[in-house]
Amino acid sequence: MKTPSQYVGGWLICAAALLMLPACAILQPVQEGQKLIGSPESAVRATFGEPTNIYRLADGSVRWIYSKQPLGYEAYAADFDASGKLTNFRQMLVTSEIYQAKVDSWTKRDVEEHFGKPLEPVQYYPLMQRDVWSYRFRQDGNLSSLFNCYFDKQGILRQVQITLDPLGGDSSRAP
């Protein structure tokens, strides 16, 4: 027969294991999100919480953005098909995704759908007549950088630029 302290010890082990589950979603969000592919929106919401932004895409799918901006370096996209099942989960503020931005083609809406709303203050350069949106990211995985998107008056992406993050930091800095 078990003593009361054995029951309490077993309960504490179970409680500790349950508390560690959300920590996995925080420490390894892409891996945890990939495990949920095929799951309904409710499972993603239960794991990651409320998204920062929600977009209905032209193909009928829905994208949720989980942004760690303005001081973090990540923006995760959870893509759902028309039936509400998760089809993809990935980090969007990586070099390979940033290089997909199409100058003279993308609009502000396209940039938002890909990276989320800018959470850094929007800059305006009157001589260029350009709004500039900036997103922090780690270029090639470790160099703290800013991805800057320059838009004309019509909201068309006219220029992109990668600069060093003026706040500095390196890959060991916790966002």
Rank of each mutant, 00 (worst) to 15 (best):
K117S: 05
D131H: 11
M128I: 08
E113M: 10
R173C: 15
S42R: 11
Q161H: 12
K85S: 09
R173W: 15
E120T: 11
S134Y: 00
T52M: 06
K68Q: 14
C149F: 05
S145K: 00
C149S: 04
D79A: 13
Q159E: 14
G168S: 03
E41P: 05
Q100T: 13
L86S: 03
R138E: 08
S61W: 07
K68N: 14
A15W: 12
V30I: 09
S61M: 10
S39P: 04
D170H: 09
A82M: 10
P126R: 05
A78K: 03
Y66S: 00
K85G: 02
A16F: 12
I65A: 00
F147W: 10
S5L: 11
I37V: 12
V132A: 13
F115I: 04
F151R: 06
P126C: 02
V122Q: 00
T87W: 00
P126A: 06
V132P: 02
E120I: 13
A23F: 15
Y124D: 03
Y55M: 01
A43T: 01
F80Q: 07
D140E: 15
N88S: 15
G84P: 03
Y73T: 13
S61K: 15
W11I: 13
Y124Q: 02
V160G: 02
Q123K: 10
S171E: 11
P4H: 07
P118I: 05
Y150F: 09
I54A: 13
M128T: 07
S42C: 11
R45E: 10
D170V: 04
L18V: 08
D110S: 04
Q159N: 15
K108I: 09
S61T: 15
L18R: 11
Q161Y: 11
V94K: 06
P4Q: 09
N142E: 12
F115Q: 01
K2W: 14
S172M: 11
Q100P: 09
D79E: 14
S145V: 05
E112K: 08
S96L: 10
Y66T: 03
Y55A: 03
G155A: 01
I98F: 05
E97S: 10
D131R: 04
T52R: 01
V132W: 00
I13Q: 10
L167C: 12
G38M: 08
A46R: 03
T163K: 04
L119V: 03
Q123I: 15
E97H: 02
I65T: 01
I37M: 05
V103E: 05
Q69V: 13
Y76F: 07
S105V: 07
A17G: 11
V8A: 14
G33R: 07
M1P: 07
E74R: 14
E120C: 01
V122G: 06
H114M: 09
A78E: 09
G33E: 08
S171I: 11
S172E: 13
R56N: 13
I156S: 06
K85P: 09
G10C: 01
F89R: 00
P4D: 10
D140P: 05
Q154N: 02
D59L: 08
L127C: 07
I13M: 07
G141N: 00
Y73S: 02
K102Q: 14
L27F: 14
K68A: 15
E120R: 11
V160A: 07
F48E: 06
A17N: 04
T3P: 07
T52Q: 00
F89H: 02
